[in-house]
Structure formats: structure tokens, C-alpha cells
Amino acid sequence: MPSETPQAEVGPTGCPHRSGPHSAKGSLEKGSPEDKEAKEPLWIRPDAPSRCTWQLGRPASESPHHHTAPAKSPKILPDILKKIGDTPMVRINKIGKKFGLKCELLAKCEFFNAGGSVKDRISLRMIEDAERDGTLKPGDTIIEPTSGNTGIGLALAAAVRGYRCIIVMPEKMSSEKVDVLRALGAEIVRTPTNARFDSPESHVGVAWRLKNEIPNSHILDQYRNASNPLAHYDTTADEILQQCDGKLDMLVASVGTGGTITGIARKLKEKCPGCRIIGVDPEGSILAEPEELNQTEQTTYEVEGIGYDFIPTVLDRTVVDKWFKSNDEEAFTFARMLIAQEGLLCGGSAGSTVAVAVKAAQELQEGQRCVVILPDSVRNYMTKFLSDRWMLQKGFLKEEDLTEKKPWWWHLRVQELGLSAPLTVLPTITCGHTIEILREKGFDQAPVVDEAGVILGMVTLGNMLSSLLAGKVQPSDQVGKVIYKQFKQIRLTDTLGRLSHILEMDHFALVV
């Protein structure tokens, strides 16, 4: 994948999101292997301009796509893939009243899908469409860049269908997702969380590099694949309309690839034109409109599966009536509230959605109805927002919020430890010299600072030695090549209790 991002070429006709291997024109390309080798690009942008032909009021008969309808489940399912879809609609009884809503608040519980998330729908649909058009064949390999849930859905379907599955996901995604993927037989590649989507090191860039190296491999490409919004247009939206008897006044959905909100909203605009569509985008993402909503100094966020630093091709923002931004604290607070007060075992993005819903639905009156999409299960986040310690460490809970008995030293300040200034190293000294210094002084790690004293990161003896043994660096290389740029900081005025929580999850903390 090139470091400079080429513009994806656009073909003359058809839909841009065809499933299957992508040609340089962004659509299915038939021909000899030699032709494909000559024409197939190194990668295709996940934010390529959409060429979708959908228009409100256009006859369904003019759609270029294969459409399906929700099917009634048999008493005995032939395999677990038949437990994807037909998820329950559940009334939220307490939270709406707590925040003064007059309307009825309903939750579409997508964590009841077989793999635990709304992404099971698009995973199965992308595979079925690729099999139907002859792209996927027995023994082929599926590769997908994902925040985890699409990966789980694909790995689940691949396990049943017999495909090899490789999932490329950023490091910030939970260990629970990784464990589930491994249990399903998927191979996992992790990428830096802070890598831009168009960087060769991003999950998108690495996935395309693997595709170019592995024979008979395919990126189904949830960011561009029409099967993504079509899955929701054909099934999720129809289920909502049936469950609500066609009567709903507002739908609120958090947005990642945009397939969920695009597919549902398009069908609702056709069948229930008075329904307002509300999009939820986390602070630090750029999906919301108008652009002024996205202006923030924050560039990272903890909530998973929603928000991006690019506009995915499948996201149709014209069908969203209003956007709201959400933050991590309210997302996790509301997710825990949904679990504790409503018994809905949902993930953090569901918290984002409901946090926005109780604001947006203030305009609705008694007798009206708001539906929220709860995308995934708490299963993926047992060591994250479900953990009091994690919430404390991230600053989303305060010590006084917890009532468990603490040891005698818990409320003492870090400054009472009488710490001395640490050994520091410059980023320009060599790895070999740094190892000598650390061994001589008896230290395992040291902060790396520039000549102005600005902290650049941390270097550890173990990481340097393993990097040297693996051949990633040489003793003569500058130590700046092996620094940890993500590390926890703590102030002298913070409590030892807070430091204790940090050290339970990290090997060190830097006192500043």
C-alpha cells in the first residue's frame, strides 16, 4: 500500500459497493488471473465517493441489488447463522422517566444476534452475496479491517462455511474481542490505534497488504460494500417497522461504517417519512454534520465500534436529520445504567446512543415513540467499562463513588512517597548505550525526554532486548525507535489509591 493515498477510480455505471474482489474501477472485475494482476490496485480507499443510485421515491424494481426479506425461524435451526436477525424490541421503562421523557422509549437489542452484535447481519450478508456472485469459493481466505464486531461476525460465518479468516484490528480494541476471535479460529493482526486510516500501518493498510500477498484472499470491505446497508434496509428496518406496527417518530443510532443508519433510515424514509433520524458520533470522530460539531482538541476516545477519521463510502449522511456528539463518560455511564436499571447487557456504544436519545427525544410528546439501536453486548468489555477499576483509572468514576473498604494508605498523596527525580535518556542515544546505562543503574525503564525536557515516551529494558533479539533494531539504532509513546501519567497530588489502580493494569506510571 502506498504512503500517498491515490484516488480510487470510478467506473461508468453500476453501484460502487459490489461485493467481491475490487477492480481499479471499484466494481467486480472478471477475466484471467493475468488481467486481474495487471488491473487490481494495491488498495482502494474506504472513503471513495459513493456511486449508489438510491433515491427517495425511486421504484424498488430499479435497484441493481439482490434483495432479501426477513424469514421466520424454524423450530430447529440448521446452523447458528440462522440465529442472525429477528432481534427483540424491548421497552426501556426507567431511564426515559428518569430523564423526563414523555414518549415511549424502545430498544432494538442487536446483541441477541448469534455473534453478539449488529455486525453479524452485514457479515453474513457480505459472505452470502460474495458466494452468490462467485467471488468467494471453498478454501478462500477472508481478510477484514475491523474494530472487532464485524470480525467476530465474519469469523463466526467463516467457521460454519469453512473459510480461512484473518482479522486486522487496532490495538485499542478489547482483549475479549481478541479472545472470541481466536476461539472462532480467526487469525488476528493488531495495528497502532493512532495510525491514520490511509497510513500503511493502519488496520485498513495492513489488511490490503495481506490481501496482495495471500492468494485467493478477499477483503469484503464493510466500508464500501453495498451488502452492509442492504442488510439493514432489507431486514433490520423491516423488523423495526413490523415490531412497531409502522408507528415510530424517531430513530437514534450510533454511527461507525454508517451501514446501520443508512440502511434503516432509507427504508424508514420510504415507509415512515415523518420519522426523524438521529445520528450519534463520538467526540474525536469526524462523521457528524455540520462540520463545526467535529471541532475539538480530542483525537482519541475509548468507546469502541463507532466514529472514524474518514467518511466511509457506505455512509449516506443525507438521510440523517440531526447529529449529536457523545463523550466517553456519558457513554459508559449510560451503558452501566442500562445494565443495572433495565437488565440490558449492552456495550458502550449503546450507552452513547441512549445518552443522546434522552436529549433528542425531549421534543417528542406522549403517545409518540423513539427507537434506539443497541449494537453489541457487554461480553466484549468485561475488563473495560464493566470494571470499576478501569473506570477509575480512566477518570470516568471517582473514588467516592465506590463504597468498598480501602487499605490505610489509600488516600495518601503520591508526594508522600518522597520520590527522587528519575533517570532520563535522550532519544538520540543508541539502544546499546541505553541498555548499558539501565543495567549500570539497576533500572528496568526510563523516560525519554528531548533537550527541552519534554517527555516523549518510555523505554524499557525488556522491550529493547526483545527488539534486538527479533532483529527489529540494532544496538547502533537510536533509542527513539523503541519508545512507548502511550503511558499513564500521575500527579504528586493524586492518591496512592489512584496509582494502585493504574499499576494493576500497566507496568509503570510516570509522575509529573
Rank of each mutant, 00 (worst) to 15 (best):
T5W: 08
Q7W: 03
E9T: 10
E9G: 11
G11Y: 12
G14E: 10
C15Y: 11
H22A: 05
S23Q: 11
S27E: 13
E29L: 12
S32M: 05
S32V: 09
E34L: 04
D35I: 11
E37A: 07
A38P: 10
P41D: 08
P41M: 09
L42D: 11
W43Q: 07
I44F: 15
R45Q: 11
A48V: 12
R51W: 04
T53A: 11
A60S: 11
A60K: 11
A60E: 10
E62A: 13
S63R: 03
S63C: 13
H66A: 06
T68A: 15
T68D: 10
A69W: 05
A69T: 12
A69H: 08
A71H: 11
S73C: 13
K75N: 11
K75D: 04
I76C: 09
P78L: 14
D79M: 06
I80K: 01
I80F: 09
I80S: 07
L81S: 07
K82N: 15
K82E: 11
K83V: 04
I84H: 08
G85M: 05
T87K: 00
T87P: 00
T87M: 00
M89R: 05
V90C: 02
V90M: 04
R91S: 08
R91G: 15
F99T: 10
F99I: 15
F99N: 09
F99H: 12
G100R: 03
K102V: 05
E104I: 04
L106V: 12
A107K: 02
A107I: 04
K108Q: 03
C109S: 08
E110M: 01
E110S: 05
N113P: 01
A114W: 01
K119D: 02
D120R: 04
S123F: 06
S123D: 05
S123C: 04
R125D: 05
D129N: 10
D129C: 06
E131G: 08
R132S: 13
R132T: 10
G134H: 08
T135E: 04
T135I: 05
P138S: 15
G139L: 07
I143E: 00
E144I: 05
T146N: 05
T146D: 02
T146W: 01
S147M: 02
G148L: 02
A155D: 04
V160C: 07
V160L: 11
R164K: 11
C165E: 01
I167W: 08
S175E: 11
S175R: 04
S175M: 03
S175I: 15
D179S: 08
L181N: 01
L181I: 06
L184H: 05
V189Y: 07
T191I: 02
P192L: 03
T193E: 10
N194C: 09
R196S: 10
R196H: 04
R196Y: 09
D198W: 07
P200N: 08
H203P: 06
V204G: 07
V206H: 01
A207M: 01
A207Y: 00
R209M: 08
L210F: 07
L210Y: 03
L210D: 02
I214S: 02
P215Q: 08
I219N: 09
D221N: 13
Y223G: 01
Y223S: 02
Y223T: 01
R224E: 09
N225L: 02
A226K: 10
A226W: 08
S227G: 05
S227H: 10
N228S: 01
N228W: 00
P229D: 04
P229G: 04
D234P: 02
D234V: 03
D238C: 09
L241F: 09
Q243H: 10
Q243S: 05
C244I: 02
C244Q: 06
L248W: 00
D249K: 14
M250V: 05
M250K: 06
L251W: 02
V252C: 10
A253C: 07
S254Q: 06
S254P: 10
T257M: 02
G258N: 05
G259R: 00
T260C: 08
I261H: 02
I261P: 01
I261Y: 03
I264S: 05
K267M: 14
E270H: 02
C272Q: 10
C275W: 08
R276Y: 10
